[in-house]
C-alpha cells in the first residue's frame, strides 16, 4: 500500500472574477507531495503558481477539485501550513522576538514555552543580536529569516514559500538557500517552493514541477537526482539545467506558435 501523502491536490481549478470578467488562473492541477519532500514550482509569470500555493495555504478556495492534507480537505489557513511571502509579511510593530513568538502565543501556549521556542529559533536563524530590533531595522535577508523562523517556531509541518528569495541580492539568496536546505534536512520539513529561477529550483528541489500559462496548469514533473550538496558549477548540474531550460522554452515556443 502506498504511503499516505502529506499533500494531495486533485484536479484543482481556480477561476477569478475580475470586473465581471472570468480569469482561469488554474485548470485541473494534480500534485502529490510526500512528507519530507522539497518540491519546486516553476513556470512563466501568470501560470498560476501563486494561486496553487494560496489554495494549499487555504487563502483561496478552489473553484473545482480539492486539495487534501493528510487526506482531509483544506478549508482555510492553519498553523500546520506556514507561508513565507516574498514581501515578508512581518508585523512591523513587533520585534524579531515578538514576530517569531506571534504564532505560539496566539495558539495559547504557556509563556515559558513560548519564550524557549522563540530563543531556539532566533538562534537557529542567526538573529540573536537583532532579537529586539523592529522589522524596518533589518535587511531583506534578515527579514526573510524572521519570516522563516516564524513558521518553524509555529510547528508548521509544511512550509509554503512564494518566491521567498526573489527580492534579495544574489549573495544573500545563495546563503539563504544553503540555510533553508540545512534546516530542511535537519527537521524533515515538507517544502513547496515557488521560484522563477531554474538554477534555484534545481539546486533545492527533490522534484521540479513545471507549470504553463493560458490557462495555468501543471505541464511536467522532473525528479532531480543530483547528490547533495549540489554544486551549481558542476557539469552534471549544468546538464540538468540545460535540459530543464530546453523543456521550459519548448513550452513557450509551443504557446507562441
Amino acid at each position: 500500500m502506498a504511503e499516505l501523502p502529506i499533500l494531495d491536490v486533485r484536479g484543482v481549478g481556480k477561476i477569478y472574477e475580475l470586473n465581471g470578467q472570468k480569469i482561469e488562473a488554474l485548470r485541473g492541477a494534480d500534485l502529490v507531495v510526500r512528507k519530507g519532500e522539497l518540491v519546486c514550482l516553476i513556470g512563466a509569470s501568470g501560470c498560476g503558481k501563486s494561486t496553487l500555493l494560496r489554495i494549499v495555504a487555504g487563502f483561496e478556495k478552489p473553484t473545482s477539485g480539492q486539495a487534501l492534507m493528510w487526506d482531509k480537505p483544506i478549508t482555510g489557513p492553519a498553523p500546520d501550513r506556514g507561508m513565507v511571502f516574498q514581501d515578508y509579511g512581518l508585523f512591523p510593530w513587533l520585534t524579531v522576538r515578538q514576530n517569531i513568538g506571534f504564532g505560539p502565543s496566539s495558539r495559547g501556549l504557556p509563556k515559558a514555552e513560548v519564550r524557549d521556542t522563540v530563543e531556539r529559533f532566533v538562534t537557529m536563524v542567526g538573529l540573536t543580536r537583532f532579537a529586539d530590533a523592529y522589522p524596518h531595522q533589518l535587511s531583506g535577508g534578515m527579514k526573510q529569516r524572521v519570516a522563516i523562523a516564524r513558521v518553524l517556531a509555529n510547528d508548521a509541518e509544511m512550509v509554503l514559500m512564494d518566491e521567498p528569495f526573489g527580492a534579495l541580492d544574489a549573495m544573500t539568496r545563495e546563503r539563504l538557500q544553503d540555510e533553508l536546505l540545512e534546516i530542511w534536512q535537519r527537521t524533515k520539513l515538507t517544502v513547496l517552493f515557488v521560484t522563477h529561477s531554474i538554477e534555484e529550483a534545481i539546486f533545492l528541489a527533490d522534484r521540479v514541477v513545471v507549470m504553463e500559462p493560458g490557462p495555468g496548469r501543471i505541464a511536467s514533473e522532473h525528479r532531480i537526482d543530483l547528490p547533495r550538496p549540489r554544486d551549481v558549477a558542476s557539469p552534471e548540474f549544468n546538464e540538468v539545467r540545460r535540459e530543464m531550460s530546453a523543456r521550459l522554452h519548448s513550452h513557450h515556443a509551443r504557446k507562441a506558435a
Binding site: 489557513p77 501550513r81 506556514g82 508585523f91 496566539s106
Partner: peptide, 27 residues
C-alpha cells in the same frame, strides 16, 4: 491584507486579530 493572512496562517483567530493586527496597524 497580507498581515491578516500572516496572522491567520499562524493560528490567530479572527476575533483575536482585532487586537493583534487591526489595532496596532491602525495606530
Amino acid at each position: 491584507k497580507r498581515l491578516f493572512e500572516a496572522a491567520s496562517m499562524l493560528g490567530c483567530s479572527e476575533t483575536a486579530q482585532f487586537f493583534k493586527v487591526v489595532l496596532p496597524a491602525s495606530l
